[in-house]
Nucleic acid binder design. Sequence first.
DNA 1: CCTACCGATCGGTAGG
DNA 2: CCTACCGATCGGTAGG
Lengths: 196, 196
Amino acid sequence: MPTTEVISNRKQEIIEKATALFQKQGYSATSMRDLASFIGMEAASLYSHIKSKEELLQIICFNMADKLFEPVKNIASENLSADEKLRKFVLSHVKVLTNDTASSAVFFSEWRHLSEPYLSDFLKMRDQYEGIFIKVLIEGNRTGIFKFLDAKFTVLALLSSINWLPSWYKKDGQLSPEEIAENVTDVFINGLKVRN
Amino acid sequence: MPTTEVISNRKQEIIEKATALFQKQGYSATSMRDLASFIGMEAASLYSHIKSKEELLQIICFNMADKLFEPVKNIASENLSADEKLRKFVLSHVKVLTNDTASSAVFFSEWRHLSEPYLSDFLKMRDQYEGIFIKVLIEGNRTGIFKFLDAKFTVLALLSSINWLPSWYKKDGQLSPEEIAENVTDVFINGLKVRN
DNA sequence: CCTACCGATCGGTAGG
DNA sequence: CCTACCGATCGGTAGG
């Protein structure tokens, strides 16, 4: 998955069109003939650019994983309080998702069709990503900023309260990524209830 | 979808096994031959009990929709404050999900493979369900209990912060449905931050 | 509930 | 990037 390989413009186009179809129909329900006719070529011709249907899914999933992972790793190493870190995590996460909703949607709902060893690698990365969030929650609990019953449970709830975004967000909608992130962190960190 | 039809034990078994496979492999990636061999019969024999592969998906999806909808409709008509109502909504939602995680998982991630007019009916029910939640949030905002930027956005975030549960919850795990609901409402309604 | 079978479609390859 | 084609598998039906 470390894609050191050069990706041609044509291959890039195939990936983009595949992403759109995988999002709309699902990976399994999308045939290579669907993809070919959507691009305007014969199905057999796709194979001069890609090795297999699954290669497309691998590229989409691991590319998104990298885009999510890197900024969060950087924020984690900054010298910030736990709640400031969590806010920045959420903003970063939201920005990556809203920046490419199609890839994000495929990433979240089609990864299970990866075959081994890609599936295991993918799950390992996901665990690491969640681990960064969990660590900050625990840190915040230690310093008396956060309260919660179970750190992992809370992180999964937090992340999934954001991860429906790709299936909903429109770039021409009224909410910017920043407003969405603010909304999520406000509700999740500060709560829905008016403080009294 | 109003299933007035009597469902035989054998059909019930087919539905349950189909649910398990749809959850594990996805609807499109599950063949009728997969299902048949999982049950221990020939693929052709399935069709003396069901009309089509999609009928199985229809039954699973609309059955779950009913199970979610009914209790929430009842709670909505009770004479409670907005935050009490929301708490009861969440508890009901969590209970239905944890009670049948396999059906819930299929319900949440495979509904898009429904054909018309089932797809439109399904989306209509989903909108109505979300509408009940939205109404309570707006009510709570009017009575000064809740604050939020956008009611629909907040409801979608709330529901999706719960809807990952089916893919995670184990009946023999340490958290009961009540504890999960408590956890979700505590964080979501009261916030993660310690009040000061 | 089975055997036998249908036409359609699948991911992918050979060879140019 | 195309034509031609492969074996495998798909959802489903006929007939018993």
